[in-house]
Amino acid sequence: MAGKAKTGAAAKKDGANLPFLYQHYDHETLRGALRKMYLIRRFEEGAEESYMRGLIHGTMHLSIGQEASAMGICLGLTDDDQITSTHRGHGHSIAKGADVSRMFAEFFGKTTGYCRGRGGSMHIADVTKGNLGANGIVAGGIPIAVGAALTAKKMKNGKVVVSFFGDGANNEGAFHEALNMASIWKLPVVFVCENNGYGMSTSVARATAVKNIADRAAAYAMPGEIVDGNSVADVAAAAHRAIERARNGEGPSLIECKTYRYRGHSKSDRNRYRTKEEIEEWMTQRDPIEHFEEELQEFGVIDLAGIEAIREDVAKEIAAGIEFAKESPMPDVANLEKYVYTEQA
């Protein structure tokens, strides 16, 4: 999603005391951001419910609780900019502009899904909106993002690439190799670590030698910034700085969004590595959507009736998406081998 920035008088009138987000984007864009965060959450709740009811198989990794980082980053991107995503990637996909109907259809394994039923939850991509794909391999998308940024630099097309990954990925070799290359070649890429505290069950404290993952930016001579990943405003401000830097040819940045996932790692998770109290505290005290709603009301962007209208609208879109997925055709087994290779005349 390309956020619509304010210009001239409108920007000045709001004064310098407002956070960057509220100075930089117009009200319609900000309401749109809230709507997308609801869309992410309700999409995942809808997917979870469909799974519980046995309508879809496999597994899924839900990002409920992490919506602010996906939205705050993608606000600063144009439709032409590109992202790589992760196994926990539904939020990135929706924030970058994907249609939830086609995402549900992919969950249901249908031909109308983004991957025609071949990819499922872990491989959803929407290349028309610059989403090069979720990825089932931890850190798998990071070098690919650097390659996309190399293309952008070679073709001088002005694109910026964002690579989303989790805290677990920062201990993979691919992370280090990719950040190093992005830095030596000054590529237009922004590395976004969504640190939700746990790589599956292993806490960051137990798995990572440095206190903050952003500290690792120093090893690759790029700026590293820590933000409250549950605050759209904080994420968007950091994203803006990093994206501008990339677009100006000054090279890559690393942003660490400190956040939390409400659900377990995947559907097999029994949540034995963290306490109920910890989960409860994040859910009740630091919810990114509630926090954003409070700010939007405080700054006069929306009122309760407006929020309620968004919720209803999103509920309708989700219901229609699930219906679309249910009604869509299954792939023909005769086409099993299609798409392994590019069909040539």
């Binding site: 090069l132 798998g140 070098p143 690919i144 390659g147 996309a148 293309t151 691919a174 280090h176």
Partner: peptide
């Protein structure tokens, strides 16, 4: 990383 960069460059 190099192979991944090549893949990312090719796909774009």
């Amino acid at each position: 990383g190099g192979a991944g960069v090549a893949v990312g460059a090719a796909v774009t």
